[in-house]
């Protein structure tokens, strides 16, 4: 197989592609065009047929699949050899990885295994002189760092949100999947006590997110954030400041070290707008800020703002949201 730009996707059982996967395919097509090579997409998990079909419809020229119960739930040491096999089969120099919760567990190690290098949080990839440079967030998003590659092996790039558009879906475009090798791995890390199963909707998928910060002033007022979120049919998020203070749970943290959300509508209430928080929400389609301080940095990112005390504004927002009938699904 000649060189392909490879997209490496970890698929949940039976799932189609996620937005992040589709964006990665879009980015791969642009890079592949610049390098004059085709796109390959590896789908790794169990029951990956739906995702594989969609990858073909969204422009993958080769589809590589690893479909085995042993690949679920995700474990770095089982995923890694399969991913390395995909890179070898696709003769990939450039490997794109969609954002996800497990990047730190496999991206740098995968790059190191193949004598390559990785960059995480990539906001732009530039094709240059037969190679690429990667622009990635640094200092929590306060800056962008431009990296050149020195390693001889593949460049593994984990993408930030909105690096590219999802390619149009061409119904009926099919590619016959080629199976990857899933070898037995002697596990060195075993789960003793699993986390509670993921139930209900995920913050990452919510179309409306209402987040509260230290400006709420006290733990019990976080209830107002939940109320507004519920009235808008959305979910409640939080800044790290109030997660650290246990006003909200770690699962609700938005930001660099929390969840990255991409809703249509994001409320930042009593949140200052530190770059590490914005790293998790700056790709919201519409961002609303409520803050007592008219100079608060959050207003530099917001589309709409209210300068005022959130304890006065929140009950009004809840009242109006409650009146306006069914929220957007």
């Amino acid at each position: 197989m000649p060189e392909h730009v490879l997209v490496l996707i970890n698929v949940s059982p039976g799932a189609t592609l996620r937005d992040a996967d589709r964006e990665a395919l879009g980015a791969a097509r642009a890079l592949a065009a610049a390098r004059g090579v085709p796109v390959a997409c590896a789908l790794i998990g169990h029951e990956v047929a739906a995702a594989a079909a969609e990858a073909a419809e969204r422009g993958a020229d080769r589809v590589l699949t690893a479909d085995a119960p042993s690949l679920v739930p995700f474990a770095g040491e089982r995923f890694l050899p399969v991913a390395a096999d995909a890179i070898r089969v696709a003769e990939a120099r450039i490997v794109l990885v969609p954002r996800g919760p497990d990047l730190l567990e496999f991206v740098p190690r995968l790059a190191a295994r193949l004598d390559g290098a990785s960059v995480i949080g990539v906001v732009a990839v530039r094709a240059e002189e037969g190679d690429v440079t990667a622009v990635a967030t640094a200092f929590g998003g306060a800056a962008h760092a431009v990296y050149r590659f020195r390693a001889p092996g593949p460049r593994v790039l984990a993408l930030a949100p909105a690096v590219a558009e999802a390619p149009e879906r061409v119904a009926g475009r099919t590619v016959t999947p080629e199976p990857l090798t899933v070898s037995d791995v002697l596990p060195r890390v075993e789960v003793v006590t699993p986390a509670a199963p993921l139930e209900g909707p995920r913050l990452e998928d919510a179309r409306v997110v209402v987040s509260g910060g230290r400006g709420l002033g006290a733990a019990d007022r976080y209830a107002l954030i939940r109320e507004l979120a519920a009235a808008l049919g959305g979910m409640a998020g939080a800044s790290r400041a109030i997660v650290d203070d246990a006003w909200a749970s770690p699962a609700q943290q938005v930001g660099l070290t929390g969840k990255i959300v991409t809703p249509d509508l994001y409320f930042a209430i009593g949140i200052s707008g530190a770059s590490q928080h914005m790293a998790g929400c700056s790709n919201a389609r519409c961002l609303v800020a409520v803050n007592t301080d008219p100079q608060a940095p959050i207003f530099r990112y917001a589309h709409y703002g209210i300068v005022g005390d959130c304890l006065e504004v929140l009950p009004e927002l809840i009242r109006i949201a409650g009146q306006s009938g069914e929220p957007k699904a």
Partner: peptide, 9 residues
């Protein structure tokens, strides 16, 4: 592996 060539704000 990589070389930082530039920082941009």
């Amino acid at each position: 592996g990589v070389e930082l060539v530039q920082l941009v704000v």
